[in-house]
């Protein structure tokens, strides 16, 4: 049972964090880390485990965000009522775009997903029902607790933590199921897996749909916290890229990789913005970009892969660390 020791300690620390760091900004920072960790973990299912690098995941994020805000704007319902609709829409979209695009190899799949996401952004920008360019707003003042519009970040923190644990639980369950077995085989060599009878296309599609549904929950939570979504903040390509780089930086294809990535990048982004952003000289992104470059240069497999490796070296008797992210096909 020793392998559960460190995750348990980590979880305890995560639960205690907002009680130790009590300023609103620190709590909000914690909540944001968890929120991005949800999105990046959802991305990890298809991008990390299935090795299909989606650069258009924001389309699912947007589904969740727009469904929640539309539930409020058009029907005066609590935004969370829109969550099932967002999940349904995401899974449906994933199925529709997954069938043709998942048979594309490597870069073509990535490009196709970028095109789908940009298409979604452009269409929403021209759709009156979804607020067009102006976007949709949530309740300005919370009516009931179900609006999930809080002043303090504390409720968000524990809400996001719960959703993150569920996401990670599903991911863990998936990797240990038959699907996970197939995915590992496909990632190593799709041709070999197919010839051995693995239903490669179907398994990748399932992973894609699962990932899409979870990503839309992240989008819904995001829109509730900020009370607003517009085409740029709900469907902008930068959000896709952020999910990807958080997973890659932490360690794609590893259960806790995206969480580690978010725990590094979100504070880095916030702190560099806090310290340097007000100067107006662009230094925030010089620092942020440089640190990403350095990590990619010296630790291409992600931070968690490094930690695992050091851990394995430190304790040679332990089971070998999980493998790094997939190689390009």
């Amino acid at each position: 049972m020793r392998r559960f020791l460190w995750p348990t300690v980590a979880l305890a620390l995560i639960i205690l964090y907002p009680l130790v760091f009590t300023t609103p900004f620190q709590q909000r920072l914690g909540a944001l880390i968890l929120l991005y960790a949800i999105a990046a973990s959802a991305w990890n299912i298809v991008g990390g485990y299935a090795g299909q690098v989606s650069v258009g995941h924001v389309v699912f994020f947007g589904c969740g965000a727009y469904a929640s805000m539309a539930a409020y704007s058009h029907f005066a319902l609590p935004p969370m009522v829109g969550v099932p609709a967002g999940i349904a829409a995401s899974v449906a979209i994933a199925a529709v775009i997954g069938v043709p695009t998942l048979r594309l190899s490597g870069h073509y799949f990535s490009m196709a997903t970028i095109a789908v996401a940009e298409l979604a952004r452009l269409i929403v920008t021209n759709t009156e029902f979804l607020g067009a360019a102006v976007g949709l707003s949530g309740p300005t003042v919370p009516r009931t607790v179900f609006d999930l519009s809080f002043i303090s970040a504390l409720p968000y923190y524990y809400l996001f933590l719960t959703v993150l644990l569920i996401t990670l639980g599903i991911t863990w369950w998936m990797t240990n199921s038959r699907i996970g077995f197939y995915l590992r085989a496909i990632k190593d060599s799709e041709r070999a897996a197919r010839s051995l009878g693995a239903p490669a296309s179907r398994v990748k599609l399932y992973a894609y749909m699962l990932s899409a549904g979870l990503t839309s929950v992240a989008g819904a939570l995001y829109s509730m916290m900020f009370g607003f979504v517009d085409p740029e903040s709900g469907l902008g390509i930068l959000i896709s890229v952020k999910m990807l780089i958080m997973a890659a930086l932490g360690g794609a294809g590893l259960l806790f990789g995206p969480l580690v990535g978010a725990a590094i990048l979100v504070p880095l982004e916030e702190i560099s913005n806090n310290v340097l952003g007000g100067k107006g000289a662009g230094l925030t992104f010089v620092v942020y970009g440089a640190i990403i470059v350095i990590i990619a240069r010296f630790q291409p497999g992600g931070i968690l892969a490094l930690i695992n490796r050091l851990w394995a070296k430190h304790k040679p008797a332990e089971a070998p660390a999980a493998q790094g992210a997939p190689h390009a096909p």
Binding site: F25, R28, L32, Y222, G278
Partner: peptide, 23 residues
């Protein structure tokens, strides 16, 4: 005056407003 950069993002803008108020 304490300046903050919204980076063109509604989320960042809100975070920075919160930081300016509370920190």
């Amino acid at each position: 005056v304490v300046f903050a950069d919204n980076q063109g993002s509604p989320a960042v803008g809100q975070n920075q407003a919160l930081r300016l108020i509370t920190e």
